[in-house]
């Protein structure tokens, strides 16, 4: 299991790993919610809803590393 944003950066979380994105964000001290219009995960605390994630076609990366 990935436990930090650093791990996220290294693992390149896919674009539909909802449970894993929530687990990583819950353990991440850098999580900051993006504006509501840019949030796509149902879990409020999720890498997919974080201001510091960056989308690519097949993954997200963490800009806080």
């Amino acid at each position: 299991m990935i436990a930090s944003a650093t791990a996220l950066q290294e693992s390149a979380l896919g674009i539909d790993d909802w449970a894993e994105a929530a687990r990583i964000a819950a353990a991440c001290g850098s999580f900051h919610p993006d504006e509501e219009d840019e949030q796509v995960a149902d879990e409020p605390c999720s890498c997919y809803n974080c201001r510091y994630r960056r989308w690519t076609a097949a993954a997200i990366s963490c800009c806080r590393r």
Partner: peptide, 13 residues
């Protein structure tokens, strides 16, 4: 589109 050749902050919208 999100693509390596397109500069964008985090989501390109």
């Amino acid at each position: 589109l999100v693509h390596p050749d397109i500069p964008y902050t985090s989501h390109n919208s």
